[in-house]
């Protein structure tokens, strides 16, 4: 009898529990966006669905959480494009350093449904797809010693997300790439296992990395979204009118998250300064030149990125 029951939660309360996992704390914009998602669905379909959000990697870190969405053990999770790259390499497009030339450029591409559709549904064969994107800001270096020029990275061990392209990028910068799970970064810096990491400003405060790494350099190497992904079977089994509610909820989540993002970055900078973190403006061009050869290399290796890459570059041209 154990084996045949399928639908989560139905055995007990009649409500279908929808579990959403993410790796951030409860004050992070991702969580705030998901709370809006929960509120939107439950205010409309509250008699049928109970949305439960599991923060802080409780249900699994990075790739492991995605695997669980694949199997349907979890319904939704927030996934980094770096981790998604190990499932479908179209996501490699976001790993290309200096792909976008401004935040406006980045946002206009992400809002372009036409361009995004192919990416969002690319993992259908793996049993999940992206339902919306979340702003994860601009990624910059931070370390225990100031990084002002690419030379300052030489011999430094810098944490990267667990993806081959990120490893390559870090090596192109001249540093030694150390892929590790985000949750291990604080102790790793503290214990000198690594000398720094690269991320947006929130990592300094939400994850307290500013306590151990005091120099944050605005070299702006990546603008990378996070994806809210969902189990495909879950989405497809929803009746059309309910599916619409969940789709709208994803939009609501996107808006709430992005609104909270810009406030969060400002607040994070203030707090980080209080922790003694120094924010360094650096010559972006020097960093860009180091890794520009990677564009061609990545496109040659992964030709399916070419159309979307060209479209993004074209858009950049029209923006100028």
């Amino acid at each position: 009898a154990f084996v045949v029951s399928g639908c989560s939660g139905s055995a007990f309360s009649g409500k279908r529990i929808v579990r959403i996992s993410h790796s951030q704390s409860e004050t992070h914009p991702d969580h705030i966006g998901l709370l809006a998602f929960e509120e939107y669905v439950e205010s409309r379909l509250g008699d049928k669905y109970d949305i439960q959000i599991f923060p802080n990697e409780i249900l699994g870190a990075s790739v492991k959480a995605i695997e669980l969405v694949q199997t349907g053990a979890i319904d939704y999770c927030v996934a980094s494009t770096g981790n998604l790259e190990t499932f479908d390499d179209i996501y490699q497009i976001f790993s290309i350093p200096y792909l976008f030339n401004s935040e406006e450029h980045y946002h206009s591409i992400m809002e372009n449904d036409e361009m995004m559709k192919g990416i969002f549904t690319s993992t259908d064969a793996s049993g999940f797809e992206a339902v919306t994107w979340l702003d994860a800001g601009v990624r910059n270096f931070y370390a225990t010693t100031p990084i002002r020029t690419p030379d300052d990275l030489k011999g430094k061990k810098i944490r990267v997300q667990q993806s081959p392209t990120n490893v390559k990028m870090m090596e192109a910068f001249g540093a030694s790439a150390t892929p590790m799970s985000f949750g291990e970064v604080y102790t790793a810096i503290q214990q000198n296992v690594i000398n720094g990491a690269e991320n947006n400003e929130l990592a300094l405060t939400n994850n307290k990395h500013g306590e151990v790494a005091k120099y944050y350099s605005y070299n702006e190497h990546q603008m990378v979204p996070d994806m809210l992904i969902a189990n495909l079977k879950f989405l497809q089994d929803l009746p059309p009118e309910e599916r619409q509610v969940f789709d709208e909820a994803a939009e609501v989540c996107n808006r709430a998250e992005r609104e909270s993002w810009s406030d969060a970055v400002e607040e994070a900078k203030d707090i980080a300064k209080g922790m003694g973190v120094e924010f360094l403006e650096v010559d972006v061009t020097a960093f860009r030149e180091k890794v520009l050869p990677l564009h061609k290399e990545i496109l040659n290796e992964n030709p399916k990125l070419r159309p979307i890459y060209d479209a993004i570059q074209k858009e950049a041209g029209s923006n100028d």
Partner: peptide, 12 residues
């Protein structure tokens, strides 16, 4: 098992 699909449970 009572609250999760068998395949998903053992795979997890």
């Amino acid at each position: 098992l009572p609250i999760m699909d068998f395949n998903a449970a053992v795979l997890t």
